[in-house]
Design a protein around this nucleic acid. Sequence first.
DNA 1: CGCTACTTGGT
DNA 2: CCAAGTAGC
Length: 468
Amino acid sequence: MPTPAVMWFRQDLRLADNAALKAAAEAGPLVCVYVLDDATPGGWAWGAASRWWLHNSLVRLAEGLARFNVPLVLRRGPADKVIAEILHETGAASLHFTRDYAPWSGALEQRVKTIATEAGAACHRYGGFLLHEPEAIRTGQGQPYKVFTPFSRACFALGDPRPPRPAHKNLKAWEGRIKGDKLEDWRLLPRRPDWSTGFAIWTPGEQGARQRIETFIDDALSDYAEGRDRPDLARTSRLSPHLHWGEISPVQCWTAIRSAMAAAHGRLDRQGEKFLSELLWRDFSYHLLHHWPDLPSTAFQEKFAAFPWRHDPKALRVWQRGETGYPIVDAGLRELWATGYMHNRVRMIAASFLIKDLLIDWRQGETWFWDTLVDADIANNAASWQWVAGSGADAAPYFRIFNPVLQGEKFDPEGDYVRKWCPELRDLPNAVIHRPWEHEAGVKGYPARIVDHAAARHRALLALKSLS
DNA sequence: CGCTACTTGGT
DNA sequence: CCAAGTAGC
């Protein structure tokens, strides 16, 4: 029996444009494995919504491999220990995997390399999760970037990435057998099945990712630059969970958008560039996380360590349930609970409300999003919460406090988004849909405001002042 | 990837 | 009184 090559699937749950899989397939008959590792990430084990996605994505990946009669072996435990076992059980000559950039991953990948070497297997690590490796982008001074705009300029200056690799025509399985878990036994689906019924809007898996980007290009790209800010319109790409699990690579996305731009002979240039720059935001978050691994837990700007956060579990609960009395905030948190997703503009508004209006520590919001978002992502989540908190690397020179009424009126002008998620407000006229407390007849069943925004804003400015 | 307060110039 | 523009946080 020829010695196999082990393909360790991680956040690269796709067959196409997968450098690790390609190399493994060329190195020998395949042993494909996914390891569920809840130990190594410490407090950042996959949240509940992520687990729902992972379950479905693994089903799809296993189906894709089954077309080549290649099984997907499922194992559970600390990844380094499990990989060591797999290498010994199979006598593999090589191990292939795609790099990831979580704070614990550098050390993990180092241990795996040592283990593989000791087991007599060549260890190969590949990029592909990002457009640019975090070490590859440097300022003129050789330092990592702290500000997005020059970072993205440096990326654009490098030109387009190499085109994606096509999917395999053939994959060959190792003929030996090793034991694996049954996916159902991992119990990745929520215990309360009613919670995830609204997740049916998603199609996890490589095929779903491909459909998603096609639909996006056809339906939304032509108006992306402005439309992306409108939660009442379906103009965001919704690719984030697919990208997070590597069902589509950022290079595939980049190339698809570039082709659409070329096919439109320049008419889509501004819209397309906007989307490409959003893809670079994702790279930027990982760039920050890689160089500042404390980003998920510690304010980047040191003076924020002394910020007088309020301990208020009741208010946190009100925010989580979407019962703050501010329609755009509540709609966002209810959309999150129902679908595992929140529109990006609304994420900023909802996050600002938790931090600035309720003075609740951004880490509590970060934790909630980690558990409830299907696209929960360690780098994007941390960088974005810090950005809203004003404690991040590229903080605005002023203490930005979103006004939930003005934001609602600006970005959900007809109130369609708010009416969808807060049906109690359905019959309010547009003029007061984002300020229901001004409706003379009152509103049945909708909560009163948890704080007065003007007063809360004043309080937040005082809290900031206390830092200097 | 803002907001408020204030000014100006208009009705 | 309002709309538009802008300084300053």
